[in-house]
């Protein structure tokens, strides 16, 4: 009898890509919960819309590329992109914004580059940046958090807002990052005292701090599950903290804002644990991921304080996606039996 011929190893761990993706989806739940509690059902609507558009887009392109649909759709990678996109977009944004973002993310940023594993840029961030630049009005309308509202929007009103643009009245307000950015001459303490939003929160504004804490929790869970290593998130948060401390300037009118504001508002935690940890578009080695994360943190602070946009995670991540292969070349780890690490571009002397 002839037996199956297979290459070693014959044993295989029970994990697979779908498991990894499911774990990531699970880890977004605390953040989504916080978003829903403080901003209403807008994010859930976003996510559902994005799921529909992303999976449809993925299926369409797979069909065009004559790839097996089930095999690729079941890896949950499109779902992860959709959920991250839904979380990043402002709640109650028009449905077509979600559509444009989804198509940009899945069809252009992912499938046109070769599908899963081949995209040089984080698809969710590409989608986000496309609509951020294309539709600045819609993208800057963040709803007020629950503590500043009499009641959260109802589901029917929310759906009407998303699909017709009417249904909610005066639901938006400036975010904490907007407030600090628009500061002209006041001391930071005065700015904080003047803002209802920041005054009613304890770290970085009502609602926002809880959203970030939710994503931090999810991130810690993923670390515990060893979905990714600590290097990139820790480096990003550390470098952001460092810049925030250096730029705090004792809370003067020129200050860039406090440390807690930078860590717990905007998309900081979502970016640190769910965006820059995307393995496909980040650096590969531990050292590389440290550099990658630290650079993202620095860029986030610089763009937030010096740039035109109040938040900057998407831009910072995309910029560093460009640099990831370059970082990889110079951060090959030292191998067993070698005195020094080598460069990836090194040529073997014959």
């Amino acid at each position: 009898m002839s037996f199956l011929r297979a290459s070693s190893p014959h044993a295989h761990a029970a994990n697979n890509t779908a498991n990894v993706m499911q774990t990531v989806l699970l880890a977004t739940l605390p953040g989504l919960l916080a978003l829903t509690v403080f901003f209403g059902p807008g994010s859930i609507i976003n996510i559902l819309l994005a799921l529909v558009f992303c999976l449809a887009g993925e299926a369409l392109v797979l069909r065009l590329r004559k790839r097996p649909l089930g095999f690729y759709l079941r890896d949950y990678s499109a779902a992860v992109t959709a959920v991250l996109l839904g979380l990043a977009l402002p709640p109650y944004c028009p449905w077509w914004v979600v559509l444009v973002a989804s198509v940009s993310a899945i069809v252009i940023a992912k499938q046109l580059y070769g599908g899963m594993g081949y995209n040089p840029f984080n698809p969710a961030m590409v989608g986000y940046v496309v609509v951020l630049i294309s539709f600045p009005l819609q993208m800057s309308q963040w709803p007020s958090p629950a503590p500043l509202l009499e009641s959260l929007p109802s589901i029917s009103a929310s759906l009407s807002q998303v699909f017709t643009g009417q249904g909610l009245d005066a639901y938006t307000s400036a975010t904490a990052l907007d407030i600090v950015k628009q500061n002209n001459s006041q001391l930071i303490s005065q700015v904080y005292a003047d803002s209802d939003l920041i005054r009613s929160g304890s770290l970085a504004g009502a609602g926002w701090e809880w959203v970030n804490l939710g994503f931090l929790m999810g991130g810690l869970y993923l670390l515990y599950k060893k979905v990714f290593t600590w290097h990139a998130p820790v480096a990003m948060l550390a470098s952001l903290s460092l810049f925030a401390l250096l730029g705090y300037d004792s809370g003067s009118s020129q200050s860039g804002g406090s440390l807690s504001l930078h860590l717990f508002s905007g998309a900081t935690m979502l970016g640190a644990f769910f965006i820059i940890t995307d393995p496909v578009s980040s650096a590969v080695s531990n050292k590389g991921r440290l550099i990658f994360g630290a650079a993202v943190g620095a860029l986030v602070y610089l763009i937030r304080v010096l740039g035109n946009y109040p938040d900057a995670v998407a831009f910072a991540v995309l910029l560093m996606n460009f640099a990831a292969p370059f970082i990889d070349y110079y951060t090959v780890p030292r191998s067993y039996g070698h005195a020094k690490p080598r460069k990836a571009t090194e040529k073997q002397e014959p």
Partner: peptide, 24 residues
Amino acid sequence: APAQACIRCGHCAQACPAGLLPQQ
């Protein structure tokens, strides 16, 4: 199982006892 695309998750690099970058 049929091989899927590499997502460069880096689990292999963490597992490698020789300090290599298997995904690369």
